[in-house]
Structure formats: C-alpha cells, structure tokens
Amino acid sequence: MRGLSLQNLAAGYNHTLVFTDLSLAVKPKETLVIMGPSGSGKSTLLLTILGIILPQRGKIFLNEKEITSLPIEERHIGYLPQDYGLFPHLTVIDNISYGLRIRGLPSEAPARKMLSLVQLEGYEKHKIQELSGGQRQRVGLARAIAIAPDLLLLDEPLSNIDQVTKAEVAMQMKELFKKLDIPIMVITHNHEDAFFLAQHLAMMIEGKIEQTGTIQDVVKHPKTTFIKKLLMPFAQTL
C-alpha cells in the first residue's frame, strides 16, 4: 500500500526494548496523531521511523519500499522536531532551501513557493533569531515539505506555541496538511494538541498501540479506563 506501514516493529535502547510488536499504517492525506503519556514510547517510535534508532525486529515500508535499515538521509522523510531544529547561522530562505541545495536541486523558486505556502513572504532574509515562535514553526514546516517528502513527521509541533494563538496555528497547519498528498504523523503527549490536529488518533501506552480510530470513535468508545481518563476533558466537547 502507499503511505507508511510499520510491521511488527521492536525497538529500544541498548538491550531494553521500548516496544516489541508494533504495527501501524498511515495512508496518504491521512493525519495520524500518536498520543500517549511521557514514557509511552512515542518518541522512540518517531526516532525509529526517522532512522536514528534501528529496530531490532520488524519492518518499515514507505510507499511499498522497505526503509528499515536505510540511513536517515535516504528515507525522504520531512521532519519537524519539537524545537523546530532551525539552523541559526542561515537566513529563513536558506533554511527552507537547505534540503534542495544539499541535493544539488534548484532551490530558489521552490523555497519561495514554500515561504508563500506558510504565509511568510517578505521574511526571506530574516535571521531565525528575529522570528516569533509561530513563525519559526512555519519555517520548520516549510523546510520539511520543501524536499517533497514521502512522509511528514512532527514531534510535539504545538508545544512551543502560546495558548492564545495555538488554535489559529493549528488551523493553518491543518489547511497546509490538506494540500499535501502524503501521510502525516504527529507525536504528542498533549490531548489538546492531539485534538487540534488529528484526523485519526492512536493511543500509545507502555509501548503498545492500545487503540486507534477517528477522534470521535476513540473518545466515545475508549477501550480502557486509562484512555478514558486521558481523554476525559474532551468527552464533553464532542
């Protein structure tokens, strides 16, 4: 199938496995939010998909191609870390065009297009230090999608956005996601952020995907009392 497919994945640190038999699929145009408390293994899962941690068992497929043991730079994954990972010595436009320049591809026009997509025209020559948190996040997003990735991976993308603008930023992100024909995976521990962004929700607890489904399904029919407790604040809003 097209999209991301994880098959019986087991990964961890040294000899301790964080998850042992994890299977999951995300289709193109689908936004899956993996939500779970701290220590549930969601960050390990993200690092495994990205290629920073190599799984001890199982396989990862992206658009039917196995990428399990490919180096990070060959996976073609757009990645937005929690702090956005912007390069402080480069301008906004140079940050966005980095992935294209490094591949020897034309970069100027596509980077400007990305800049316009995230509504940051006029900021080309700005230094990263001159941007607000929300603007930095958009630069990070533009840079991640500028390489036309096969998958977009976002690590707590709303955690550094202030409460006042969070809903608006989330809305802009969802609008942007609609324009992408790739699977999108978001990792978060924050239920509010999960609800802002998710189409589908996967509840990860102690290294296991306990429940997946649409938000409405998971909230209305929580599989365990723990999940019910986690999602309680949103049960009334739906």
Binding site: E73, Y79, Y98, A144
Partner: peptide
C-alpha cells in the same frame, strides 16, 4: 545536543555534508 545535525540529515545531508 541541539539535534540540528539530525534534522539536517533528515533533509538529505550525509554526515560529511
């Protein structure tokens, strides 16, 4: 420590780049 080296690699840069 900042992890930006990994972000750069996710964008297609090899370790030397």
């Amino acid at each position: 420590e900042t992890g930006i080296n990994l972000t750069a690699r996710s964008l297609g840069a090899n370790q030397f780049q």
